[in-house]
Design a binder for these strands. Structure first.
Lengths: 156, 156
DNA sequence: ATTGTTACGCAGGATTTATGCATATTGGAC
DNA sequence: GTCCAATATGCATAAATCCTGCGTAACAAT
Protein backbone atom coordinates (compact mmCIF):
# COMPACT_ATOMS: atom_id res chain seq x y z
CA UNK A 1 0.00 0.00 0.00
CA UNK A 2 1.15 3.46 -0.97
CA UNK A 3 1.81 6.13 1.60
CA UNK A 4 -0.50 9.10 1.04
CA UNK A 5 -0.49 12.41 2.77
CA UNK A 6 -3.28 14.90 3.09
CA UNK A 7 -2.50 16.54 -0.24
CA UNK A 8 -2.49 13.23 -2.13
CA UNK A 9 -5.85 12.38 -0.64
CA UNK A 10 -7.35 15.73 -1.53
CA UNK A 11 -6.12 15.34 -5.08
CA UNK A 12 -7.42 11.81 -5.47
CA UNK A 13 -10.81 12.63 -4.05
CA UNK A 14 -11.15 15.60 -6.41
CA UNK A 15 -10.01 13.63 -9.44
CA UNK A 16 -12.37 10.78 -8.73
CA UNK A 17 -15.14 13.25 -9.45
CA UNK A 18 -13.52 15.32 -12.19
CA UNK A 19 -10.21 14.47 -13.76
CA UNK A 20 -10.21 17.48 -16.07
CA UNK A 21 -9.31 19.96 -13.35
CA UNK A 22 -6.32 22.16 -14.21
CA UNK A 23 -3.21 22.17 -12.09
CA UNK A 24 -4.22 25.60 -10.90
CA UNK A 25 -7.56 24.30 -9.64
CA UNK A 26 -5.89 21.34 -8.04
CA UNK A 27 -3.37 23.58 -6.31
CA UNK A 28 -6.22 25.32 -4.51
CA UNK A 29 -7.63 21.99 -3.42
CA UNK A 30 -4.33 20.54 -2.22
CA UNK A 31 -2.70 23.74 -0.97
CA UNK A 32 0.41 23.14 -3.06
CA UNK A 33 1.74 24.87 -6.13
CA UNK A 34 0.42 23.75 -9.51
CA UNK A 35 3.78 22.17 -10.29
CA UNK A 36 3.76 20.08 -7.16
CA UNK A 37 0.27 18.87 -7.99
CA UNK A 38 1.36 17.82 -11.45
CA UNK A 39 4.28 15.89 -10.05
CA UNK A 40 2.12 14.14 -7.53
CA UNK A 41 -0.31 13.09 -10.20
CA UNK A 42 2.51 11.87 -12.35
CA UNK A 43 3.69 9.78 -9.43
CA UNK A 44 0.22 8.51 -8.52
CA UNK A 45 -0.38 7.44 -12.12
CA UNK A 46 3.04 5.81 -12.42
CA UNK A 47 2.44 3.87 -9.21
CA UNK A 48 -0.95 2.62 -10.31
CA UNK A 49 -2.86 4.44 -7.61
CA UNK A 50 -4.72 6.15 -10.41
CA UNK A 51 -5.51 3.19 -12.63
CA UNK A 52 -7.19 5.07 -15.45
CA UNK A 53 -8.67 8.36 -16.50
CA UNK A 54 -11.91 7.72 -18.32
CA UNK A 55 -14.97 9.42 -19.73
CA UNK A 56 -18.27 8.02 -18.52
CA UNK A 57 -20.62 7.88 -21.49
CA UNK A 58 -24.35 7.76 -20.95
CA UNK A 59 -25.48 4.41 -22.34
CA UNK A 60 -28.98 5.68 -23.06
CA UNK A 61 -27.72 8.74 -24.91
CA UNK A 62 -25.92 6.49 -27.36
CA UNK A 63 -28.67 3.96 -27.87
CA UNK A 64 -27.79 1.40 -25.27
CA UNK A 65 -31.21 1.29 -23.68
CA UNK A 66 -30.69 -1.52 -21.25
CA UNK A 67 -28.19 -2.36 -18.59
CA UNK A 68 -28.21 -5.79 -17.03
CA UNK A 69 -26.73 -7.21 -13.89
CA UNK A 70 -25.87 -10.84 -14.40
CA UNK A 71 -24.99 -13.37 -11.71
CA UNK A 72 -22.95 -16.16 -13.27
CA UNK A 73 -22.26 -19.61 -11.86
CA UNK A 74 -19.54 -21.79 -13.34
CA UNK A 75 -19.66 -25.53 -13.81
CA UNK A 76 -16.78 -25.90 -11.35
CA UNK A 77 -14.54 -23.54 -9.48
CA UNK A 78 -11.37 -24.86 -10.99
CA UNK A 79 -8.52 -22.40 -11.54
CA UNK A 80 -8.37 -22.94 -15.30
CA UNK A 81 -12.10 -22.42 -15.70
CA UNK A 82 -12.10 -19.33 -13.52
CA UNK A 83 -9.15 -17.85 -15.36
CA UNK A 84 -10.72 -18.61 -18.70
CA UNK A 85 -13.89 -16.82 -17.72
CA UNK A 86 -11.93 -13.87 -16.36
CA UNK A 87 -10.20 -13.59 -19.72
CA UNK A 88 -13.56 -13.75 -21.49
CA UNK A 89 -14.80 -10.88 -19.35
CA UNK A 90 -11.78 -8.76 -20.19
CA UNK A 91 -12.09 -9.53 -23.91
CA UNK A 92 -15.77 -8.74 -24.19
CA UNK A 93 -16.54 -5.09 -24.63
CA UNK A 94 -20.22 -5.38 -23.74
CA UNK A 95 -19.15 -6.36 -20.25
CA UNK A 96 -18.42 -3.07 -18.52
CA UNK A 97 -17.81 -4.46 -15.06
CA UNK A 98 -16.91 -7.95 -13.92
CA UNK A 99 -16.22 -9.03 -10.36
CA UNK A 100 -15.24 -12.47 -9.12
CA UNK A 101 -17.27 -12.95 -5.94
CA UNK A 102 -18.23 -15.21 -3.07
CA UNK A 103 -21.82 -15.98 -2.31
CA UNK A 104 -24.78 -16.74 -4.54
CA UNK A 105 -22.74 -16.62 -7.69
CA UNK A 106 -19.18 -16.88 -8.95
CA UNK A 107 -19.16 -13.73 -10.99
CA UNK A 108 -21.26 -10.63 -11.23
CA UNK A 109 -21.28 -8.68 -14.45
CA UNK A 110 -22.68 -5.39 -15.64
CA UNK A 111 -23.61 -5.50 -19.29
CA UNK A 112 -25.18 -3.00 -21.68
CA UNK A 113 -27.18 -3.77 -24.81
CA UNK A 114 -29.14 -1.83 -27.41
CA UNK A 115 -32.36 -3.61 -26.54
CA UNK A 116 -33.67 -6.98 -25.40
CA UNK A 117 -32.91 -8.50 -28.75
CA UNK A 118 -29.33 -7.32 -28.50
CA UNK A 119 -29.08 -8.72 -25.02
CA UNK A 120 -30.45 -12.06 -26.15
CA UNK A 121 -27.88 -12.26 -28.89
CA UNK A 122 -25.23 -11.48 -26.36
CA UNK A 123 -26.42 -14.22 -23.98
CA UNK A 124 -26.36 -16.69 -26.83
CA UNK A 125 -22.82 -15.87 -27.71
CA UNK A 126 -21.39 -15.29 -24.25
CA UNK A 127 -23.30 -17.66 -22.00
CA UNK A 128 -25.06 -20.41 -23.87
CA UNK A 129 -22.09 -21.20 -26.07
CA UNK A 130 -19.71 -21.34 -23.14
CA UNK A 131 -19.56 -24.86 -21.64
CA UNK A 132 -17.85 -23.52 -18.50
CA UNK A 133 -21.04 -21.83 -17.42
CA UNK A 134 -23.60 -23.72 -15.37
CA UNK A 135 -26.14 -20.94 -15.18
CA UNK A 136 -26.77 -17.26 -14.99
CA UNK A 137 -29.40 -14.98 -13.57
CA UNK A 138 -30.28 -11.57 -14.98
CA UNK A 139 -31.51 -8.47 -13.21
CA UNK A 140 -32.66 -5.55 -15.33
CA UNK A 141 -31.37 -2.16 -14.28
CA UNK A 142 -34.28 0.26 -14.13
CA UNK A 143 -32.31 3.23 -12.90
CA UNK A 144 -28.57 3.88 -12.87
CA UNK A 145 -28.89 5.73 -9.59
CA UNK A 146 -25.18 6.21 -9.20
CA UNK A 147 -22.48 5.11 -11.55
CA UNK A 148 -18.91 5.89 -10.68
CA UNK A 149 -15.91 4.59 -8.86
CA UNK A 150 -15.41 7.36 -6.31
CA UNK A 151 -15.01 6.43 -2.69
CA UNK A 152 -13.66 8.21 0.38
CA UNK A 153 -9.93 7.99 0.91
CA UNK A 154 -8.27 8.11 4.30
CA UNK A 155 -4.99 9.81 5.18
CA UNK A 156 -2.35 7.28 6.26
CA UNK B 1 -31.24 9.90 -28.31
CA UNK B 2 -28.44 11.90 -29.81
CA UNK B 3 -27.42 11.51 -33.39
CA UNK B 4 -23.82 10.32 -33.63
CA UNK B 5 -21.70 9.92 -36.71
CA UNK B 6 -18.67 7.77 -37.19
CA UNK B 7 -16.33 10.40 -35.84
CA UNK B 8 -18.37 10.91 -32.66
CA UNK B 9 -18.35 7.19 -32.07
CA UNK B 10 -14.63 6.90 -32.58
CA UNK B 11 -14.05 9.72 -30.13
CA UNK B 12 -16.35 8.31 -27.50
CA UNK B 13 -14.89 4.84 -27.70
CA UNK B 14 -11.38 6.22 -27.36
CA UNK B 15 -12.31 8.47 -24.44
CA UNK B 16 -14.04 5.68 -22.57
CA UNK B 17 -10.62 4.12 -22.26
CA UNK B 18 -8.46 7.21 -21.88
CA UNK B 19 -9.89 10.71 -21.50
CA UNK B 20 -6.47 12.36 -21.34
CA UNK B 21 -5.79 12.07 -25.05
CA UNK B 22 -4.80 15.36 -26.70
CA UNK B 23 -6.83 16.83 -29.51
CA UNK B 24 -3.99 15.88 -31.83
CA UNK B 25 -4.25 12.25 -30.82
CA UNK B 26 -8.02 12.35 -31.13
CA UNK B 27 -7.78 13.89 -34.59
CA UNK B 28 -5.92 10.82 -35.79
CA UNK B 29 -8.56 8.59 -34.32
CA UNK B 30 -11.51 10.51 -35.72
CA UNK B 31 -9.97 11.71 -38.97
CA UNK B 32 -10.89 15.33 -38.26
CA UNK B 33 -8.79 18.33 -37.37
CA UNK B 34 -7.88 18.80 -33.71
CA UNK B 35 -10.19 21.79 -33.53
CA UNK B 36 -13.17 19.85 -34.79
CA UNK B 37 -12.48 17.15 -32.22
CA UNK B 38 -12.44 19.72 -29.46
CA UNK B 39 -15.74 21.13 -30.58
CA UNK B 40 -17.32 17.74 -30.76
CA UNK B 41 -16.22 16.91 -27.26
CA UNK B 42 -17.51 20.21 -26.04
CA UNK B 43 -20.86 19.38 -27.61
CA UNK B 44 -20.91 15.82 -26.33
CA UNK B 45 -20.20 17.02 -22.80
CA UNK B 46 -22.79 19.80 -23.01
CA UNK B 47 -25.40 17.33 -24.22
CA UNK B 48 -24.72 14.86 -21.44
CA UNK B 49 -23.47 12.14 -23.73
CA UNK B 50 -20.25 12.30 -21.77
CA UNK B 51 -21.57 12.35 -18.24
CA UNK B 52 -18.28 12.70 -16.43
CA UNK B 53 -14.53 12.49 -16.77
CA UNK B 54 -13.10 10.64 -13.83
CA UNK B 55 -9.95 9.07 -12.50
CA UNK B 56 -10.31 5.46 -11.41
CA UNK B 57 -8.40 5.02 -8.18
CA UNK B 58 -7.25 1.58 -7.10
CA UNK B 59 -9.11 0.89 -3.86
CA UNK B 60 -6.41 -1.49 -2.64
CA UNK B 61 -3.62 0.99 -3.31
CA UNK B 62 -5.27 3.44 -0.95
CA UNK B 63 -6.15 1.04 1.81
CA UNK B 64 -9.65 0.03 0.81
CA UNK B 65 -8.99 -3.69 0.97
CA UNK B 66 -12.48 -4.95 0.41
CA UNK B 67 -15.17 -4.38 -2.14
CA UNK B 68 -18.64 -5.71 -1.53
CA UNK B 69 -21.61 -6.32 -3.75
CA UNK B 70 -24.80 -5.89 -1.79
CA UNK B 71 -28.28 -6.92 -2.86
CA UNK B 72 -30.80 -4.80 -0.99
CA UNK B 73 -34.51 -5.47 -0.53
CA UNK B 74 -36.82 -2.74 0.69
CA UNK B 75 -39.75 -3.14 3.05
CA UNK B 76 -42.09 -2.08 0.29
CA UNK B 77 -41.72 -0.80 -3.25
CA UNK B 78 -43.45 2.47 -2.63
CA UNK B 79 -42.29 5.50 -4.59
CA UNK B 80 -41.35 7.52 -1.52
CA UNK B 81 -39.33 4.67 -0.03
CA UNK B 82 -37.56 3.99 -3.31
CA UNK B 83 -36.76 7.65 -3.82
CA UNK B 84 -35.53 7.97 -0.27
CA UNK B 85 -33.16 5.06 -0.73
CA UNK B 86 -31.95 6.42 -4.06
CA UNK B 87 -31.10 9.66 -2.31
CA UNK B 88 -29.27 7.75 0.40
CA UNK B 89 -27.20 6.00 -2.25
CA UNK B 90 -26.27 9.30 -3.86
CA UNK B 91 -25.38 10.88 -0.51
CA UNK B 92 -23.18 8.05 0.69
CA UNK B 93 -19.65 8.15 -0.58
CA UNK B 94 -18.82 4.57 0.30
CA UNK B 95 -21.39 3.49 -2.25
CA UNK B 96 -19.57 3.67 -5.56
CA UNK B 97 -22.29 2.18 -7.71
CA UNK B 98 -26.00 1.83 -7.10
CA UNK B 99 -28.54 0.39 -9.52
CA UNK B 100 -32.28 0.04 -9.03
CA UNK B 101 -33.11 -3.40 -10.42
CA UNK B 102 -35.75 -6.02 -11.05
CA UNK B 103 -35.31 -9.56 -9.85
CA UNK B 104 -33.97 -10.99 -6.64
CA UNK B 105 -33.41 -7.61 -5.05
CA UNK B 106 -34.53 -4.01 -5.35
CA UNK B 107 -31.11 -2.46 -5.46
CA UNK B 108 -27.61 -3.63 -6.09
CA UNK B 109 -24.73 -1.69 -4.63
CA UNK B 110 -20.96 -1.75 -4.92
CA UNK B 111 -19.31 -0.62 -1.70
CA UNK B 112 -15.69 -0.31 -0.58
CA UNK B 113 -14.38 -0.47 2.96
CA UNK B 114 -10.99 -0.47 4.66
CA UNK B 115 -11.58 -3.90 6.19
CA UNK B 116 -14.35 -6.09 7.57
CA UNK B 117 -14.65 -3.91 10.61
CA UNK B 118 -15.14 -0.87 8.45
CA UNK B 119 -17.72 -2.71 6.41
CA UNK B 120 -19.58 -3.77 9.54
CA UNK B 121 -19.70 -0.19 10.75
CA UNK B 122 -21.01 0.82 7.39
CA UNK B 123 -23.76 -1.83 7.45
CA UNK B 124 -24.77 -0.64 10.91
CA UNK B 125 -25.12 2.90 9.78
CA UNK B 126 -26.49 2.37 6.31
CA UNK B 127 -28.60 -0.76 6.54
CA UNK B 128 -29.52 -1.65 10.09
CA UNK B 129 -30.47 1.86 11.04
CA UNK B 130 -32.64 2.34 7.99
CA UNK B 131 -36.23 1.14 8.60
CA UNK B 132 -36.98 1.11 4.88
CA UNK B 133 -34.72 -1.87 4.40
CA UNK B 134 -36.11 -5.36 4.79
CA UNK B 135 -32.87 -7.16 4.16
CA UNK B 136 -29.60 -7.26 2.35
CA UNK B 137 -27.23 -9.89 1.10
CA UNK B 138 -23.48 -9.39 0.72
CA UNK B 139 -21.09 -10.90 -1.77
CA UNK B 140 -17.37 -10.32 -1.24
CA UNK B 141 -15.43 -9.29 -4.30
CA UNK B 142 -12.34 -11.45 -4.59
CA UNK B 143 -11.09 -9.98 -7.82
CA UNK B 144 -12.00 -6.77 -9.62
CA UNK B 145 -11.57 -8.50 -12.97
CA UNK B 146 -12.76 -5.50 -14.93
CA UNK B 147 -13.81 -2.16 -13.59
CA UNK B 148 -14.86 0.51 -16.02
CA UNK B 149 -17.81 1.86 -17.88
CA UNK B 150 -16.65 1.36 -21.45
CA UNK B 151 -18.98 -0.35 -23.89
CA UNK B 152 -19.16 -0.54 -27.67
CA UNK B 153 -21.02 2.29 -29.39
CA UNK B 154 -22.86 1.94 -32.68
CA UNK B 155 -23.05 4.51 -35.45
CA UNK B 156 -26.63 5.78 -35.91
C1' DA C 1 24.42 18.81 14.64
C1' DT C 2 25.52 17.04 9.43
C1' DT C 3 24.47 14.88 5.10
C1' DG C 4 21.97 12.87 1.42
C1' DT C 5 17.59 12.47 -0.59
C1' DT C 6 13.31 14.11 -1.90
C1' DA C 7 9.96 17.61 -2.69
C1' DC C 8 9.07 22.26 -3.32
C1' DG C 9 8.16 26.84 -5.93
C1' DC C 10 9.60 29.87 -9.62
C1' DA C 11 10.58 31.10 -14.27
C1' DG C 12 10.44 30.16 -18.76
C1' DG C 13 9.92 27.01 -22.74
C1' DA C 14 6.88 23.72 -24.99
C1' DT C 15 2.49 22.03 -25.84
C1' DT C 16 -2.33 22.16 -25.87
C1' DT C 17 -6.73 24.42 -25.83
C1' DA C 18 -9.78 28.08 -27.16
C1' DT C 19 -11.32 31.51 -30.39
C1' DG C 20 -12.31 34.17 -34.58
C1' DC C 21 -12.72 33.99 -39.36
C1' DA C 22 -13.38 32.32 -43.97
C1' DT C 23 -14.86 28.46 -46.36
C1' DA C 24 -17.01 23.93 -47.00
C1' DT C 25 -20.71 20.87 -46.14
C1' DT C 26 -25.28 19.54 -45.06
C1' DG C 27 -30.22 19.59 -44.90
C1' DG C 28 -34.57 21.37 -46.24
C1' DA C 29 -37.68 23.74 -49.42
C1' DC C 30 -38.92 24.21 -53.98
C1' DG D 1 -31.96 19.04 -59.86
C1' DT D 2 -31.01 24.28 -57.61
C1' DC D 3 -30.85 27.58 -53.92
C1' DC D 4 -30.27 29.16 -49.38
C1' DA D 5 -29.72 29.04 -44.47
C1' DA D 6 -27.69 26.63 -40.90
C1' DT D 7 -24.05 24.07 -39.30
C1' DA D 8 -19.46 22.19 -39.30
C1' DT D 9 -14.88 22.50 -40.78
C1' DG D 10 -9.81 23.83 -40.98
C1' DC D 11 -6.48 27.44 -40.41
C1' DA D 12 -4.09 30.88 -37.88
C1' DT D 13 -3.35 32.89 -33.73
C1' DA D 14 -4.07 34.14 -28.89
C1' DA D 15 -4.52 32.35 -24.40
C1' DA D 16 -4.06 28.86 -21.14
C1' DT D 17 -1.92 25.00 -19.37
C1' DC D 18 1.63 21.61 -18.87
C1' DC D 19 6.46 20.41 -18.53
C1' DT D 20 11.29 21.10 -17.35
C1' DG D 21 15.44 22.93 -15.21
C1' DC D 22 17.19 25.16 -11.38
C1' DG D 23 17.94 26.69 -6.76
C1' DT D 24 16.14 26.15 -2.27
C1' DA D 25 13.54 24.04 1.46
C1' DA D 26 12.15 20.15 3.99
C1' DC D 27 12.71 15.62 5.63
C1' DA D 28 14.89 11.37 7.29
C1' DA D 29 18.82 8.92 8.89
C1' DT D 30 22.99 9.02 11.39
Amino acid sequence: MIKLDRADVALLEALQVNCRLTSEELSEIAHLSPTACQRRLKRLRAEGVIEADISVVSPKAVGRQITMIVLVSLERERVDIVDRFKAAIRDTREVMIGYYVTGDADFILVITARDMEGYEQFTRRFFYENPDIKGFKTMVVMDRVKAGFAFPIDVD
